[in-house]
Computed example of a mutant assay.
Amino acid sequence: MKTTEFETSKFLYDDFFTVKLHLIVVEPFFVDATRKQIIVPLSDLRRDFGGLLESGEGADVTFKIDEEAFSAHRYVLAARSPVFKVQLLGSMMESKMDTIFIEDMRADVFKIMLQFIYTDMLPSEVEVSIEIAQHLLVAANRYGLERLRLICEKKLCDSLDVESAATTLVLAKQHNCGQRKDICIDFVASRDVLDGIMETDGFKHLMSSTPVLLKEILDKLKSWWKI
């Protein structure tokens, strides 16, 4: 439109004009990162491997303890435990066996250990008592499960009391748990609990099985008396 035509048109009023637009808004080609984000779900690895153990699908080895049987997968166990790796994939007789008998271990403890191997955590539906933690520590040490061993150590140290202290100390000595042994000796040598600990069956077992610990307790008492 020419300027002269525009100036004489009905759309111009007092040197102003209005433009009316009709807009159609479509989905933009970009995403505003402050408003929309891609949500990454938590890892399903524990759930998937836990389900694999529970279903027994593809299991190629069975462990028997007393009257109970547990199906498992050789390569999963070998990947998690250096002891199982030698036992199940090495030259040992068990590598050729479909059924392996486990001795000197409770069935409920072995079941919890298996669940830990597959999921890297203790089962939430099981209450891990002091007694179970003691047995699990022995099992973890037996199969080279360092993380499980440390979890059990922490559980036992956090739960130290007069009744369990001496037994926990003996376990720490027998399984080379240096840090836990030091914590137990500090607890046992405390002036306000030592008399009570000495009356327990655990302390009697300590004196008969590992009398060397008595010297360590006395050395700790001497060091505190000097202070």
Rank of each mutant, 00 (worst) to 15 (best):
D14W: 06
N141M: 04
L77N: 12
L45M: 11
S164T: 04
L169D: 01
L156M: 10
D48L: 05
L206S: 05
A72E: 00
K154P: 02
K10P: 14
H22G: 11
S129L: 05
E163A: 08
L89Y: 11
T99A: 11
A72K: 02
Y75C: 15
D60N: 07
D32G: 05
R74L: 07
D108C: 08
W224K: 15
F70L: 05
K20H: 08
K96A: 09
L218Q: 12
L145P: 03
S81R: 11
S209T: 14
K20M: 11
K36I: 09
V126N: 01
S9V: 08
D48A: 11
E199H: 00
F16G: 07
L213S: 11
D60K: 00
P123V: 04
I130C: 10
E94K: 09
L171S: 06
G144L: 09
I132A: 15
Q174H: 14
F17A: 07
G178W: 13
V25P: 03
T200L: 01
N141R: 15
G56R: 00
V83Y: 14
R142C: 13
H73A: 15
E68K: 12
P211G: 10
D192L: 05
M93K: 15
F110T: 02
E94T: 04
S209M: 11
P82V: 07
L136D: 02
F17S: 04
D44L: 06
T4G: 02
D161G: 05
E27Y: 05
F17Q: 05
S159M: 02
K154F: 01
G144E: 12
F11V: 10
F116G: 14
V31H: 10
I185C: 10
F63Y: 12
V193W: 00
S91A: 14
I117M: 04
I183P: 03
M105Y: 04
M121N: 01
I217P: 08
K2N: 09
W224H: 15
K222A: 14
I185T: 10
L45S: 07
D66Q: 11
V26G: 10
T3S: 14
D192W: 07
G56H: 00
T4F: 14
H135Y: 13
I117V: 09
V193E: 01
L221F: 05
A189E: 00
L23Y: 10
Y75N: 10
D14C: 01
E57S: 06
E153R: 14
E94S: 01
R74K: 03
L21N: 11
K36N: 08
R142T: 07
M105C: 05
A69T: 15
A33H: 10
I151K: 06
I183D: 08
D60E: 06
M113G: 06
